[in-house]
Amino acid sequence: MATTPDRPGCHALDASLIERLHAVQQRHGYLPRAELQQLAVAMQRPLSDVMGVASFYHLFRLVPPPLHRCVVCRGTACFVRGAERLEAGLRRRGVAFETASCVGACGQAPVLVLDGTVGCGDPGALPEP
């Protein structure tokens, strides 16, 4: 999709950039540089313009995702139940993780999402570093 040239006179040129970025990310798991370049060429847009959009949104990844994905929720309930200690514990153990504002599972606070599975991340239950 990223490399399909647009027909001349297409009015949705500007509007379709984000959709196309989503398609690239779906295929590769992130936005590889070569794909961004091809997208810019195909859409006849400046490289910096495409990169500006891609880098603005947190949902777009510019680097390959790690083998396992670990997300710590930073919502209010999770904060109260020790999300900060959970983050510190993961950091101490050298675990790469991302953060989210609220994943909507406040009953299990502090929430930890491991490879898409939502669960309770009790900081006291982490294995010894």
Binding site: P46, S48, D49, V50, M51, S55, F56
Partner: peptide, 21 residues
């Protein structure tokens, strides 16, 4: 008409970028 520059990233990480950063 070259559009080398644009604004990349956001918040405190916001910066001027050239090409694909």
């Amino acid at each position: 008409g070259a559009h080398v520059w644009d604004v990349g990233y956001r918040g405190s990480a916001c910066s001027i970028i050239a090409g694909l950063d």
